[in-house]
């Protein structure tokens, strides 16, 4: 049976890891290639790079980062950020990505997912979904964009369902409410998505320890993504896997 996955995420700007990174002593934990190599050695099942640059120069730096990481990385690599066209997606694959995550551009033009699927395959097409609890009814979720500045009103679960029909082979679901809080993944969001779509779901936003990951996997996630807890050195992937294996989860245990 397929194993559950642990996915460290590097938020990269201008060739540097920017999220939750602490610079200590001589160890430069902000270098994406060093981080990628360390996480693979710890037993990471996959790596995610999100380009958070806002400029064209930043975008080309991000492509260079993907090339550099790919050269040393022997596990799958998902890359997201700024993908607006099939050509953008193809360029990332050429640089060394195995999957491409699409976010805002697919909201504006959902057919983009179908186009990427047709040209690159469903196994390359990931929907990055940023979902938040509705202010007027917190038991429901809406799609959030522009770093939280825009609440679209679009039902997040319905959007995930539509995206999977169009061609997304995986949903990377980030809880806007939990991201950066360390309070754990939004389990109700994951359960609602699990009930709605048949494609794999990657839980993101809020993890601070293995118990959070265990709960997300029980709620229906196929993979768990985290950034800060790895960059800060709170846990290695191997630490988390030991706990999750003891909890009975099926994981790849030989890095």
């Amino acid at each position: 049976m397929v194993k559950r996955r642990i996915i460290p995420c590097l938020d990269v700007r201008d060739g540097r890891v920017v999220k939750g990174v602490r610079f200590q002593g001589l160890v430069d934990s902000g270098d994406p290639v060093e981080r990628a190599a360390a996480y693979e050695a710890q037993g990471a099942d996959e790596l995610c790079i999100l380009d958070v640059s806002a400029t064209p120069e930043g975008r080309s730096n991000a492509a260079a980062t993907v090339v550099a990481v790919r050269a040393i990385l022997g596990i799958p690599l998902t890359v997201g950020g700024g993908v607006r066209t099939v050509q953008d997606a193809a360029r990332l694959l050429e640089a060394g990505a195995d999957k491409v995550a699409v976010n805002t551009a697919a909201l504006a033009r959902p057919e983009l997912l179908a186009e990427i699927r047709a040209s690159l395959g469903a196994q390359c097409t990931v929907l990055a979904l940023d979902a938040g609890r509705r202010l007027d009814g917190p038991s429901r979720f809406e799609v959030i964009t522009h770093s939280g500045k825009v609440r679209t009103g679009l039902d997040a679960i319905e959007w995930a369902r539509r995206a999977a029909e169009l061609g997304a082979g995986e949903i990377l679901a980030t809880s806007w409410d939990r991201d950066g809080t360390g309070d754990g993944y939004d389990l109700e969001l994951l359960a609602a998505l699990r009930a709605a779509v048949g494609v794999p779901i990657v839980a993101s936003g809020g993890a601070s320890h293995a118990e959070h990951m265990s709960a997300a996997l029980h709620a229906g996630a196929d993979a768990v993504l985290a950034a800060s807890i790895f960059h800060r050195g709170d846990f290695t992937v191997a630490d988390l896997k030991r706990t999750l294996l003891a909890d009975g989860h099926s994981l790849r245990n030989n890095p």
Binding site: K3, A122, Q123, G198, D222
Partner: peptide, 9 residues
């Protein structure tokens, strides 16, 4: 249970 079959097996 889920397709695509994504991941380590």
């Amino acid at each position: 249970p889920r397709l695509p079959h994504f991941g380590w097996n």
